[in-house]
Amino acid sequence: MALKTGRGAEAPPFLVMDVIAAANARAASLPPGAYPDSLGILRMEVGQPGSGAPRGAAEAAIRALQAGNPMGYTEAFGLASLRARIAGHYRDRYGVTVAPSRIAVTVGASGAFPLAFLAAFDVGDRIAMAAPFYPPYANILTALGMVPQLLPCDAGTRFQPTLTMLEKLDPLPAGLIVASPCNPAGTMLSPEELAAIARWCHANGVRLVSDEIYHGLSYGTVAESTAVAFSDSAIVVNSFSKYFSMTGWRIGWLLLPEDLVRPVECLAQNLFISAPHVAQVAAEAAFDCREELEANKAGYARARAALLDGLPAAGFDRIAAADGAFYLWCDVGHLTNDSLEFCARMLEGAGIAASAGVDFDRERGSRFLRFSYCGPEAAMVQAPARLKAWLGR
């Protein structure tokens, strides 16, 4: 007799994780000096900063360990000192006053999303989001029995949802996820656009979930703003993984509306107990590492500029406005109608790992791919030359 499979098994795969495995295997099989530039496989598939945690954060963790700190459980919402520091971040960066009691320290943003979704939505609820989108939004919702409602966006809307688009929805969804800067396109909502969307959601009983994990990484003229400045009912998700370069430490946070504080706390107590204590110590110290973090950002900016300058000559000339984050979303419909196969050939032939667009947009992603440029700068700037040689340009 076949055994029952749970609902969670229905979640689609996060394909970029498969690309990581393929790139690792390809790198292991390469002979020394396989490429003239001696850089090996160029890792442009995943949004993982190549710099690692800032020195001050790592040193804070070392000091705590050497002092004999047992690193036991913290409160479910995290260390009081870290929550106060995050609240200070909102005051200093955005001019917004938030109570530390509304802040939940989480096991990365990845741990924040299921807490937010479970507290705010019911099984069967529809939650809207722009397409293309960060795959785990839809995959987590699907695993929880909720229904992703995709809003097809393109260059005409800068790959972001618009108020006009939302006003046409009938019936209204239970929630809306926005991201600014967004993954994969790197585009941003202006403060005025975010304010209009946040106020529309609040007025219409649509729970807004604002993914702000790429805040601190913007390069153009669009200013960063936080949804909490415009709505008391919005949920904000953030993380130490991107600007703070602390992916493997698995540390993030939620900024919650008052009505969800206790429900999320109860869920966190049962699902996670607490975020890792040592990671919380390091995260608090990371706020004092701005000089190093801004130097990392300057490196991303240089890599971004080199790619935007060099990729068109290599045949990648249809790129979304890269306002922030560290991604380039490229329309490669003139090169392929199968981005998954194209990326596999690119890894084999050019030694470049990139993410196929089908991971981010199941309907139209076969003609798109995403390059991440947060790896070592020397490797990132070499990509156009490799692509040009591979495509015979």
Rank of each mutant, 00 (worst) to 15 (best):
L293Q: 05
F316G: 01
G72Q: 03
K297E: 05
R370T: 14
C343A: 12
S366Y: 11
A109C: 12
A143R: 12
E75K: 08
R55T: 15
L141A: 15
N337I: 10
Q48L: 15
E75N: 11
A57K: 02
G310H: 00
A87V: 06
P148L: 08
A344L: 07
P171L: 08
E294P: 06
G351M: 00
E363S: 12
S366G: 13
I41H: 00
F272Y: 15
S180Q: 05
L260M: 08
C374D: 04
P376G: 11
L169T: 11
M380L: 06
L115Q: 02
R345W: 04
P12S: 10
L144D: 06
G216F: 02
G40F: 00
L387F: 01
D170I: 06
Q382F: 01
L260A: 05
L115G: 04
Y94W: 15
D18H: 13
T247D: 13
Y214F: 14
N296W: 12
I319H: 09
L293N: 02
A11E: 10
L30N: 05
R85Y: 01
L42G: 04
S190E: 07
C289R: 01
L311S: 00
A109Q: 14
V206M: 07
G299P: 04
L369R: 00
E377I: 02
A67F: 05
S51C: 12
M380I: 09
L65D: 13
S372Q: 08
E265L: 14
A53N: 08
I103W: 06
Y219W: 09
L208Q: 03
A282F: 02
V222A: 10
C330Q: 03
P276S: 02
C182K: 13
A229W: 07
Y300K: 04
N24A: 15
A313G: 07
G72T: 08
N69W: 14
T142P: 07
R304S: 02
L340N: 11
A283N: 01
